[in-house]
Design a protein around this nucleic acid. Sequence first.
DNA 1: CTTCGTAATGTTTGCGTAAACATATCCGGC
DNA 2: GCCGGATATGTTTACGCAAACATTACGAAG
Lengths: 329, 329
Amino acid sequence: MADVARLAGVSSQTVSRVSTGHPGVVGSTREQVLAAMKQLGYRPNSAARALKRGEFRTIGVILFTLATTGNSRTVEAIANHAAEEGYAITLIPVASPTQDGLLGAFTRLGELAVDGVIVIMEVHLLDAVTVVLPPGAQVVVVDSDAGDRYTVVDTDQADGARQAVRHLLDLGHRTVWHLTGPAGSFASQRREDAWRAILTEAGRPIPEVRHGDWSAESGYRAGLELAAEPGCTAVFAANDQMALGLLRAFHERGRRVPHDVSVVGFDDIPDAGSFIPPLTTVHQDFAAVGRLCVRAVLRQIRHEITEPGTTLVPTRLVVRASTAPAPAA
Amino acid sequence: MADVARLAGVSSQTVSRVSTGHPGVVGSTREQVLAAMKQLGYRPNSAARALKRGEFRTIGVILFTLATTGNSRTVEAIANHAAEEGYAITLIPVASPTQDGLLGAFTRLGELAVDGVIVIMEVHLLDAVTVVLPPGAQVVVVDSDAGDRYTVVDTDQADGARQAVRHLLDLGHRTVWHLTGPAGSFASQRREDAWRAILTEAGRPIPEVRHGDWSAESGYRAGLELAAEPGCTAVFAANDQMALGLLRAFHERGRRVPHDVSVVGFDDIPDAGSFIPPLTTVHQDFAAVGRLCVRAVLRQIRHEITEPGTTLVPTRLVVRASTAPAPAA
DNA sequence: CTTCGTAATGTTTGCGTAAACATATCCGGC
DNA sequence: GCCGGATATGTTTACGCAAACATTACGAAG
C-alpha cells in the first residue's frame, strides 16, 4: 500500500480510502491512485483488513458430506447468497460422525476465520463439543430440532411427509408402508413421525417400517422384502435414491409400478423425473433453505434480532407416474 | 493474549509459544498457560496470525456448480484432504458462466485470503480475466487441457471413453452411438474425441453424435431419437445421468436394455448400480482427483517443484447389466 | 570458583490496514 | 479582505500475533 501511495504521490490513507470506496477523495486523485494500484498489481491484504476491522466476511459451513443431494444443493445456495452479500464461505467437513471427527472439526473451526457458522447436521451431535464454538453467530440447519436454543432453518419435513402419505391414501390405498433414512437423522425421524401420525389419524394399520441409509442400494434391499409383502400397495420412501432402489426391486420381482405398487420419494432430485417410471416425490426447496440460512447468520452477525426459533420452508408434492389408484383387491 | 499472559504470570510471547506448540516451554509453565487460556476462553485470532505469518492456510476452490456429482465429490475430497493438511477451503461459486460472473468471482478471489486456488473448469474461460488471479499458486483441474501452462489434475477421460467403446465393440456391436455433454465442457470433448478415435481406428462407421447437457432429461430426449434409429444397438453416454434418461426413453419405446440396445455411462455415480437395469459405466475416482489437487497446490505453496503438467487419474470400467452382446441381425 | 553454554523466558518490533485525529486548502458571505 | 466552515488529504496509532533478538538462570567443565 505504501508503494502505491508513493507512486501516486499521496498518503497511504488516501489509498486506503480509494480501495474501500470511502467518499471524500476527489476524482483526479482517485484516478491516480487507481492507476498506481493497477501498475503495481496491488491487492488489499485481507488478513490485515480482517485484523483491523475485526471481521472476516466469511461464513463457515460445517457438515458431514457433500455426497447427498440435499447437502450439496444447500451448500451451493449458501455459497451463492453469501457471495452476493460479499461473504466468502469456508467448508468444514467432518471426516466421520464420531466424537473424534467432530472434535477435530470444531477445533479447526475454533481457530478459523469466520464470523458465523452454519451447521448442517443434527445439533445434538454437537452438544458434547459445543463449547468450542467460536463466539460468533450460528445457525443450525437441516436435520435439527434445536429451535429453542438456536436459529433453525429447515424444510418442513412433516408437511412434506404428510402430503406424500395423504396423496397415497387419497388414491385409495389401504395403508402406506415406509422406508426410513438412517437412525440419527432428524429429517428421517421427522418424516417417519409424520407418516405414522397421518396413518394413526386416518385409523389405518401401521406397517412395520423398513430402515434404509439414504442409499439406492438400501432401498433395493428393502424393496426386495416389500415385494414379498402381499398387502403392500403403496410405499413412501424417505428420499428419492432409496425410492430408486425400490423401483428396481419391484421391477425385478415383477411388481409393476404404479399398477401394483405406488411409490413416493422425497427430495425431488433432478433425476427423479427420469426414473422408470418418473417418480412422484416431495419437492424440497434447497435454494430457499440456503438463502434463509445466509440471511439468518448475517442478521446475527450484524447484531440484529437474534431470537432462537425455527423457520420452515414449505414443500410441494410433485405427482409423476409412480403413483396410481390402489389395485382392486 | 495479553490477558492470558497476565493471568498465567508469563509474557505474551510464552503464550504464543504454547499456542503454536513451539518447543522451549517447560511443562509447568505450559500447564499454567493452558489453564489460563481455558479460563479466559482464549482463541487465537487467525487474521492476526495470517497477517504475521504471511499465509492463510486456506485454499480457494472456484467452480460453476456443486450440482454435478463430479464437482461435489471432487470438492468433498479436496476439503477432506485440505483439512488433513491443516488447510481450510473457501468456496468461490461463479454464479453464471458469463464474462461478468467470472469477473465477479475473480474480483472477489483477488481479495480473498487464500494461499492457492483450485479451478474446476475449462481454463480457457479464465483467459480473459486471468490477470486477476492472485500471485499465489494455482492448480487447474477437471475440464481443462492447459497442462502446458498450469498444473492440471484430471480423470483420464480418453482412456475411460476408450474402455467404454472398446467394451461395446468387443460385445460384437457394429458401431457405437454417442451422446455428448454440453459444448464448452472439456471433459465432454475429450470423451467424444476418444470415442471417435476408437471407431475410426476400428474402421467402424461413425454415427452422428447427439448433444446433451449432462441432465437426465436431455438424455431422455436423445433416447427418444435414438430409439427410432434402426441400426442403433449400442450407446455411450458421456455421463450416468444422461444414461438414465436414455434408459427411460428406451424403456418407453419398448427397446429392451440390454437385449436390444446396450448402454454405457460415465462417472459411476452411487445410484448407477440401481438403475433399471444396473448401469455399465466408467468409474471415476473423484477422491483421487481431489487428493492430487490438494497435494499439487500444497507443493506449489511450499515452493517445491512447480512444473506445469498434467496428472491423469485412471478410470475403470464397471460392467453391470446394461450391456450385452449385439442382437443377432 | 569462575566461565561458558544451553535452556527458558521476556522485550521489541512490524506484518498491512483503516479509524481517529490533525492539518491544509478552498469557497462564499459579509 | 477576512473569517467560518466545508472538503480533501496527511499523520499517528492500534488491531493480535510471532519472529528476532535480549536477558536470565542454571549446570557442567575446567
